[in-house]
C-alpha cells in the first residue's frame, strides 16, 4: 500500500512490475483551459486485476478512463495500455479492449441479437493464439441474461436490460482489458448482483483486466481487488479495501458521560485522550465508548467537503488521515 504525500510523491506506480502490467500510467496530466483536472497521476494495473477508480464527481475518473480508452488526448505524462500508447493505438490494439458505454437511444431499431452478431463480426480476424474472438453471441446473451429478449428491438428494452446489453457489447470481442465507467448506474439490485458475479467471472476465469470507475465505496469494495482514490486530480490512496481501512481510518470517536451530561470528541489518539479523561474526572466518567471511524466515514467526509467546494482542504485532510 502506498499513500501519496504531496503532488510530487512517488506513487503506486511500480515500474518494477512492468512485465506484468497491462495498464501503466505515470505523470498523467490533463488540463482544460486553465483548470488542471489531472495533476500527475501514476498507477499500474496487473493482468487479471480488478481496479476500482474511486472518487467524488469531478475528481477526474472519467477523464482518466477516457484517456486510457484512447478517446481523449492527454496534456502530459506516459500512458500504456497493452503496451501501446492509447493516443496511437491501431485497430489490433483496439480489438484487445472492451469499453462499456452507457447506451441512450442508439441502435433503437436493431434487435438485440442482431446488433450483438453485427458487432461480433468486427472482431473476426483478431483472434490470438490464446484468445478466440469474437465470443459466441448465444452464450453471451445467456451470460448477461438477455436470451429471453434476443428478438426484442433495443428501443423497447427496459433500462436494466439496456445496461446488460451495454455490458454484452463491451465483452463481445473477449477483451484483455475492460473499461467500465460508472457501470451500475441505473441497475436494479438483481442486475447489480448479476453484474458483480460477471465481473468476478471475467477476472477469474478469463484473466480479464478490469478498470472501473465508481463514486460508490461499497461497490468498489465488492468489486475491486485494489482501490485507487482519486481526488483533486491526483491519487490520494491506493490499496485493497482492507489496507485502506487500516491506513485511512485513524480518527476515533470517543463518547462518554459526566453525570447526566453526554460528551463526544473526535481524536487521532484515543488512548491518550481516554487516559487524560480518567486523570481529570476519574470515577465520574461513565458510558465510555471508543469507535474508530470506518473507511466509509472518512471517505464520505472527504467527498462532502469536495462537493461543497472545499476541494483543497478535503484532499489535504484526507491525505493527513491517510498517513
Amino acid at each position: 500500500m502506498t499513500v501519496l504525500g504531496e503532488v510530487e510523491g512517488k506513487p503506486g506506480a511500480d515500474p518494477g512490475a512492468g512485465g506484468d502490467a497491462v495498464i501503466s500510467v505515470s505523470g498523467l496530466r490533463m488540463r482544460y483551459g486553465s483548470v488542471d483536472v489531472l495533476n500527475g497521476v501514476d498507477f499500474t494495473v496487473r493482468r487479471g486485476e480488478v481496479l476500482g477508480l474511486l472518487g467524488p464527481n469531478g475528481a477526474g475518473k472519467t477523464t482518466t478512463i477516457e484517456i486510457l480508452e484512447g478517446f481523449r488526448m492527454r496534456s502530459a505524462g506516459e500512458v500504456a495500455v497493452l503496451g501501446t500508447d492509447p493516443a496511437h493505438g491501431d485497430e489490433r490494439w483496439r480489438a484487445g479492449l472492451g469499453v462499456v458505454l452507457q447506451s441512450w437511444r442508439d441502435h433503437a431499431k436493431w434487435r438485440v441479437s442482431e446488433l450483438l452478431s453485427h458487432l461480433a463480426v468486427y472482431y473476426k480476424g483478431y483472434s490470438t493464439r490464446s484468445i478466440a474472438r469474437p465470443r459466441d453471441v448465444g452464450e453471451l446473451m445467456e451470460t448477461v441474461g438477455l436470451t429471453a429478449h434476443a428478438g426484442k428491438k433495443i428501443g423497447q428494452l427496459s433500462g436494466g436490460q439496456r445496461r446488460r446489453l451495454d455490458v454484452a457489447i463491451g465483452i463481445v470481442g473477449r477483451p484483455e482489458v475492460l473499461f467500465l465507467d460508472e457501470p451500475t448506474v441505473g441497475f436494479d439490485p438483481e442486475a447489480r448482483r448479476d453484474f458483480h458475479d460477471l465481473v468476478h467471472r471475467l477476472a477469474d476465469d478469463e484473466d480479464t483486466t478490469i478498470l472501473l470507475t465508481t463514486h460508490d465505496l461499497a461497490e468498489a469494495e465488492k468489486l475491486a481487488d485494489r482501490i485507487l482514490i482519486l481526488a483533486g486530480g491526483r491519487i490520494v490512496a491506493d490499496g485493497s479495501a482492507d489496507e485502506l481501512s487500516r491506513q485511512v481510518s485513524t480518527e476515533s470517536e470517543v463518547k462518554w458521560t459526566l453525570g447526566s451530561e453526554r460528551h463526544v470528541h473526535a481524536t487521532l489518539d484515543a488512548t491518550a485522550f481516554v487516559r487524560r479523561l480518567f486523570e481529570e474526572h476519574g470515577e465520574a466518567v461513565g458510558d465510555l465508548e471508543v469507535r474508530r471511524a470506518t473507511l466509509e466515514e472518512t471517505y464520505m467526509t472527504m467527498v462532502q467537503q469536495f462537493e461543497t467546494g472545499q476541494r483543497e482542504a478535503a484532499v489535504r485532510e484526507f491525505e493527513e488521515a491517510a498517513q
Partner: peptide
C-alpha cells in the same frame, strides 16, 4: 448525439 458513432469508434475498424 445518441452514441451510435461512439460505439463504432469502440470496435476495431468500426
Amino acid at each position: 448525439e445518441d452514441g451510435t458513432l461512439l460505439r463504432a469508434k469502440a470496435v476495431p475498424n468500426g
